[in-house]
Design a protein around this nucleic acid. Structure first.
Length: 417
RNA sequence: GUGGGUAUAGCUCAGCUGGUUAGAGCGCCAGAUUGUGGCUCUGGAGGCCGUGGGUUCGAGUCCCAUUAUCCACCCCA
């Protein structure tokens, strides 16, 4: 073999790809019902879109981007997420001119240079939505409820929805300061990671898995302790709306989202039993992002769901999808004289909407039957010279193990019945 | 970027303390008298034992490196 697929990428083969199509179809249905229109943006963008939009200090930008210089000396990056690109497209196409809010969705591959592990790949796929132009907490709740609705339609069970408010530019600096005051006396005892976080992002110390860090963090002020009145009110209303539609959630004041642009609502959905990377979706509000990208102050909220992780969860939960690609009919021939007519019959079946197959390896009738059985064909249409002169075919029902002669003119109706 | 496990046929794996032509099950192809699948039986194709070095009379087996893969950390979907 010349080479293999690049690390952390996957070939999705027939048999597997139908599951993807099924989930994608459900996602599109949900979007239609909730009023989200599809947006397709480039797979690559100018690097500065992500470094500025996602945040210079994030892991994504610091160490996970697929960045290269193109032949025109431009720095290009394969998209690591799609919120920044959606904001860019909104501004570039002047979607402010549309009735507000503007509700968009996307689906497709994202790229991050990580070490692969269970549920994590370098090329992975996200389905996401973004709603621009409304501060209203009902749209926060709508976005969350929509994600949960999709999971439910797919059939996923035992999911945990965690929600939190990470504050706004008014109250977040206060939280940062109070956290640093809390951790400062214990700085020596924190794990090396958290000692680094102390300066960079003290919020993150709160969801460290290290026991000592957790113990010290237990008494620390949380986001919810320092929310300003406005943030507090907003968060309470989001919860009220979720209650109103029966979406169950866990308020997790340790929940911090990694990307710089989040404000107010943050949420994450966790699955059991798919390994350490248990988050199958997450999102939140990002009221400052549009301005950071050079646009007018415009609030936004969205989510991104990981398709690989959704499919993995479904597999672990033993969920089967109603997908099939078996041919309905198989045209078998006896003797070489009838092959042209059989070929024509095959074509005619297909053109009338019946999935039909034939043998391509000059197999004996016995081998053709065996092959048809393996393909899962329900009907085998057997054509020999003798049948052909009488305008009939022997049609075998592979499930019942019975067969009978059918006039060629009635074949389609017979198979459809 | 860090740590650990694994690498033998298309797939799942045997191959004992180094010893002759590397095996099984499944899958694939063919056959078991005339034009009929599933079960059974028979035969066949298919392997630079991940790659490169080293130790040895001799390496699939031991050592080193490298690559890939899996799992975990970091982080995220």
């Amino acid at each position: 073999m010349l080479t293999t697929r690049p690390r952390g990428t996957n070939d999705i083969l027939p048999g597997e790809v139908e599951k993807w199509q099924y989930v994608e179809k459900l996602a599109r249905e949900v979007c239609r019902e909730y009023g989200y229109g599809e947006l397709r943006t480039p797979i690559f963008e100018h690097t500065e879109l992500f470094s500025r939009g996602v945040g210079e200090a994030t892991d994504i930008v610091e160490k996970e981007m697929y960045t290269f210089t193109d032949r025109g000396e431009r720095s290009i990056t394969l998209r690591p997420e799609n919120t920044a690109a959606t904001v860019r497209a909104y501004l570039e196409n002047k979607l402010q001119a549309l009735p507000q809010p503007v509700k968009l969705y996307y689906m497709g591959p994202m790229f991050r240079y990580d070490r692969p592990q269970a549920g994590r790949f370098r090329q992975f796929h996200q389905f996401g939505v973004e709603a621009f132009g409304s501060h209203n907490p009902s749209i926060d709740a709508e976005v969350i409820a929509m994600a949960m609705d999709l999971y439910q339609r797919i059939g996923l069970r035992d999911l945990e929805l965690h929600i939190n408010s990470v504050g706004c530019p008014q109250c977040r600096p206060g939280l940062r300061q109070r956290l640093q005051e809390h951790f400062k006396p214990h700085l020596e005892k924190l794990c090396p990671n958290c000692q680094g976080r102390f300066e960079r992002n003290p919020l993150r110390i709160l969801d460290c898995k290290n026991e000592t860090c957790q113990d010290i963090g237990r008494q620390a002020p949380t986001t919810l302790d320092v929310l300003c009145d406005e943030c507090n009110t907003h968060f309470n209303l989001v919860k009220n709306y979720l209650d109103a539609v029966g979406v169950r959630y866990i308020v997790n004041n340790r929940l911090v989202r990694g990307l710089d642009y989040y404000t107010h609502t943050a949420f994450e959905i966790m699955a059991q039993d798919i390994g350490a990377q248990s988050s199958i979706g997450g999102g939140g509000r990002y009221n400052g992002l549009m301005e950071a990208c050079g646009g007018p102050a415009t609030p936004g909220i969205g989510f991104a769901l990981g398709l690989e992780r959704i499919l993995l969860t479904a597999e672990r939960q033993g969920i089967t999808f109603p997908v099939s690609r078996e041919p309905a009919a198989f045209v078998a021939t006896v003797g070489t004289e009838v092959e042209k007519q059989a070929f024509s019959l095959l074509q005619s079946l297909r053109q009338q909407g019946i999935a039909a197959e034939k043998d391509y390896l000059a197999r004996s009738l016995k081998a053709q039957m065996k092959y048809a059985g393996k393909l899962g064909a329900r009907w085998v249409v057997i054509l020999g010279e003798e049948e052909l002169t009488r305008g009939v075919a022997m049609v075998r029902d592979m499930q019942a193990g019975e067969q009978q002669e059918v006039k060629l003119a009635e074949l389609v109706n017979y198979i459809r019945k």
